[in-house]
């Protein structure tokens, strides 16, 4: 039975039987792994709070024979992100980010960059960062990391960079901006102003450590959030349940 010890983020968990839990982990070295934690539901001795949502942990995982399910025996808590649970909106965003990653990655397909992105995002949520800009950046970086970086450099139809435009549009099929000359039959709601395009292209390149210095005002947020969300969701092709929760909690939570 090979053993792994790797940093991991708890993406989800569910009760299994009377006393066990099934944990979905995004591990650094193995990618997404499903693991069973025996006795985790009842006994606090071995796991206390390590196996709860969003926790950054270092578990010891055992491979089971004839099963892709691993067994989690021991787990160090590296960071509990204890502030996320104190604010419903933070909880909603953290759940959304984790679900997006869960939906995106395949089992046992390690993805170090995505791991760092999620960890960074959860830290930002925990530290009380502004959530709407964080979400825009998260979508943008996720797209870039998984190979669908939106093109903000040149019109995806005529391949030209045209400055001095009043607005650009966004083409989902080609994944990038369209100049106003080529955008005549694109829906009006896909509009991005030049300032927003510039900001997004900057947010694509800036290192994670410096990203929090980028300032998103209301207009670029309002323009880019729905476009990036739609783009990610259409590429995924499945429902992200937390997104519904998030949209609804925007209405409910003040």
């Amino acid at each position: 039975m090979p053993l792994h010890k790797t940093p991991a983020i708890i993406l989800n968990h569910k009760d299994f039987g009377e006393s066990d839990k099934i944990i979905t982990l995004f591990t650094y070295s193995l990618g997404k792994i499903t693991s069973i934690a025996k006795g985790a539901k009842r006994s606090r001795k071995r796991f206390a709070n390590q196996l709860d949502l969003f926790s950054f942990v270092r578990p010891i995982l055992w491979e089971k024979q004839h099963s892709s399910l691993t067994r989690i025996d021991q787990c160090d808590l590296l960071q509990p992100f204890a502030s996320i649970r104190k604010v419903p909106e933070r909880f909603a965003y953290a759940a959304y980010f984790c679900e997006l990653v869960d939906a995106w990655v395949k089992d046992r397909d390690p993805h170090a960059e995505l791991f760092h992105l999620l960890l960074w995002a959860l830290r930002m949520v925990d530290h009380g960062a502004s959530l709407a800009p964080l979400s825009v950046i998260f979508h943008l970086r996720l797209l870039t990391i998984v190979g669908y970086a939106p093109n903000f450099i040149a019109c995806v139809t005529c391949n030209l960079w045209k400055g001095g435009q009043v607005f650009y549009s966004f083409n989902y099929e080609k994944g990038g901006i369209v100049c106003s000359d080529c955008a005549f039959n694109l829906p009006l709601k896909n509009r991005l102003s030049p300032g927003t395009v510039k900001l997004l292209s900057l947010a694509q390149k800036t290192s994670l450590a410096k990203l929090s210095r980028l300032h998103f005002s209301a207009q670029p947020l309002a323009e880019s959030a729905p476009i990036l969300e739609n783009f990610v969701h259409s590429l995924l092709g499945k429902e992200i349940k937390s997104y519904r929760f998030l949209s609804r909690s925007h209405e409910c939570i003040r």
């Binding site: 909603a92 959304y96 349940k241 519904r244 929760f245 609804r248 909690s249």
Partner: peptide, 11 residues
């Protein structure tokens, strides 16, 4: 309890 990933919201 609230469980966004399972589609459980306030309603």
């Amino acid at each position: 309890v609230l469980s966004p990933m399972d589609g459980v919201g306030p309603d």
